[in-house]
Amino acid sequence: MELSDWFKGFERGISCLAPEQRASFFSECAKNCVKCGTLQIYQGLYEKARGDLDIFFQESNKLPGVRSEIIEKDSVYDLYFMECTCMLHRQGYVSTPLLCECSKQSILYVLHSLWKEKYFRVTICESILRGSQHCKIQIETTNNGNT
């Protein structure tokens, strides 16, 4: 059996999960993935921005393949990725848009790791796996958890 055959079953399996179950499943995958390097990149941006969200997202524009926009100061941001960086997709193993939940959970994990006092809502607006030219993720924040 080829590894790609195993991933066909993986795709079918995650399609059977309820959205809450997929979020829980992918949150663990996301944590493991970002701890392998991505988290350190964003920690560096956080330190450079001294915890200021607006500066953090302005600085993220300097990362290769990343673009961001401040939609509403101190609360709403659009984050764009010009290519899918998931190695499972890049190596041809997984192509379902359900995989984008992992990206959402990755962003949530990074943000919660850096801003422990804030709550975030992350919405995938567009994604490459859904047929878009880029991934567009909207991030909203509040201090009280009512997102």
Rank of each mutant, 00 (worst) to 15 (best):
D5Y: 08
R121G: 05
V110Y: 02
T141M: 05
E28N: 14
Q21W: 07
I55H: 14
D78I: 03
V110I: 15
M1A: 13
G13T: 07
Q58S: 08
E11L: 06
L111C: 00
E101N: 14
G92C: 01
V66F: 14
L129A: 13
R130C: 07
E140W: 01
V66S: 10
S68R: 09
I55W: 13
W6E: 09
E101S: 13
M87C: 07
C16E: 14
K104E: 09
N146E: 15
G9P: 06
N146H: 14
Y93K: 10
I124N: 01
G131R: 01
G131C: 03
F25S: 02
P19C: 04
G145K: 08
E11I: 12
Y119Q: 03
I137M: 08
L17G: 01
R130P: 04
R67D: 03
F25Y: 11
M82H: 10
D74F: 04
M1E: 11
N144Q: 09
H134A: 12
W115R: 00
L108G: 07
E72H: 05
E47V: 07
G37S: 04
Y109L: 05
D5Q: 12
N144F: 10
M87L: 13
Q133R: 15
T85A: 12
P64N: 13
L53G: 06
S60K: 02
Y80T: 01
Q43M: 14
T141S: 15
I128D: 01
C135F: 03
R50H: 13
D54S: 04
I128C: 00
K73P: 12
T141R: 07
Y46P: 04
Q58M: 11
D74T: 06
E69Q: 04
I107Y: 01
P97E: 10
Q138S: 14
Q133N: 13
C33N: 12
P64S: 13
E83M: 12
F120Q: 00
S15R: 05
G92R: 00
W115N: 04
F56E: 08
Y93R: 09
L88A: 15
V76T: 11
I124Y: 01
K48L: 09
C16Y: 10
P19I: 01
Q40L: 14
I137E: 03
G51M: 02
Q105G: 08
L63W: 00
S132A: 15
S15V: 03
R22L: 05
E47D: 12
A30S: 00
C29V: 04
T123M: 09
C29W: 12
C36S: 11
C86H: 15
V94G: 01
I128L: 00
E20D: 13
Q105I: 10
R67W: 02
K73C: 07
K35T: 10
S132D: 10
L45N: 06
E117I: 08
E20P: 07
F26V: 11
Y42V: 09
C135P: 04
G92L: 00
L108D: 09
K136P: 02
M87Y: 11
F56S: 08
F120A: 03
Q105Y: 00
V34S: 06
L3M: 12
W6M: 10
R67L: 03
E69D: 05
D52T: 01
V94L: 11
L108A: 07
D52S: 08
H112R: 15
I124W: 02
T147W: 11
N61F: 06
P19R: 02
E140F: 02
K8Y: 05
K62N: 14
